[in-house]
């Protein structure tokens, strides 16, 4: 029974990691660098959600689209002002600069919202009891929301011209250019998608626990682990990777202290890089 209960928590965590990993994976596929500021973009999304939850009194789910839109906007601004100028340099410079952006975003969040924890809703949620399992209503919303967004991403990538162009650029950048695909516009689209998904992950994290300025940074490592496990550059791999990492992290608490959860994600990531660096389904190396 304990295992099943942990599975429930694992699926919730996996849903959140998946949303983050989709963005990390796509940004890597198209821009060829590991985006270290992704965790802090999640945090930013969570706090944007708080603005509407606290300010307008709406539910976190209702605030979700607004938080996603605002975070996507910030992602575009950061890309156009900082990353765009560095695109012709080596990827490692982009990676380091994204580390700087991560610190800057976190400091800004602390400046605006303060260093203390916040909650979307105070008070106790009455959990559902399903076959003896404890399931909080928020957990259901998180999983349903994540499934809905993943389906939306899938439809976007397979049915729309822009989504297909993203896959094309990730597949073969040089060919995309000679085909006449407008690279800069597709890159912007990638940031919108990545930023929006990061915001959703952040809001869901906030619904699951409490908001604090390092909430996203704390899951960056598992998010990277999920993206690498799924084969970085492959958004579909990120979905599977997120679930595996999330469930593994929660199940590990059967035998390890819960504080070691990130270490479990890290261990899986390192093992994967050693054994099969192209990911479960053979992505890019």
């Amino acid at each position: 029974m304990e295992v099943l209960q942990l599975l429930v928590y694992g699926v919730v965590l996996g849903s959140i990691l998946t949303l983050g990993a989709i963005g990390v994976s796509m940004i890597f596929g198209i821009l060829r660098f590991a985006h270290f500021a992704h965790g802090d973009m999640m945090t930013l999304g969570a706090y944007f959600g708080l603005v509407f939850v606290a300010g307008a009194g709406i539910s976190p789910l209702a605030a979700l689209p607004l938080a996603m839109g605002l975070t996507a906007g910030v992602a575009i601004v950061v890309d156009q002002t900082i990353y765009r100028r560095l695109r012709r340099t080596q990827p490692v410079i982009l990676l380091i600069s994204s580390f700087g952006i991560a610190l800057a975003l976190r400091s800004l969040i602390q400046l605006v919202w303060g260093p203390n924890s916040e909650v979307y809703r105070s008070g106790i949620q009455i959990p559902h009891r399903v076959f003896g399992l404890v399931v909080k209503p928020d957990h259901l919303w998180i999983v349903c929301g994540a499934v809905g967004l993943v389906v939306a991403v899938h439809l976007f990538l397979t049915r729309t011209k822009m989504g297909k162009a993203m896959r094309a650029m990730s597949d073969n950048m040089d060919l995309a250019l000679v085909t006449g695909i407008p690279a800069e516009r597709v890159i912007m689209g990638t940031w919108v998608l990545g930023g929006a998904m990061a915001a959703a992950a952040g809001v869901f994290l906030g619904m699951d626990t409490r908001l604090h300025p390092t909430i996203g940074w704390g899951v960056l490592l598992p998010v990277f682990a999920a993206a690498i496990l799924g084969g970085i550059g492959k958004p579909y791999g990120a979905i599977a990777g997120g679930m595996v990492i999330g469930i593994a992290m929660e199940l590990s608490t059967l035998v390890l202290e819960p504080t070691y959860k990130p270490a479990v994600a890290f261990a899986i990531m390192v093992a994967m890089l050693v054994v099969r660096p192209s990911g479960l389904f053979g992505g890019r190396t």
Partner: peptide, 12 residues
């Protein structure tokens, strides 16, 4: 574009 279908390659 290796992971895309023939039709998607043409669409691109």
């Amino acid at each position: 574009f290796p992971t895309m279908t023939v039709r998607e390659n043409l669409e691109m």
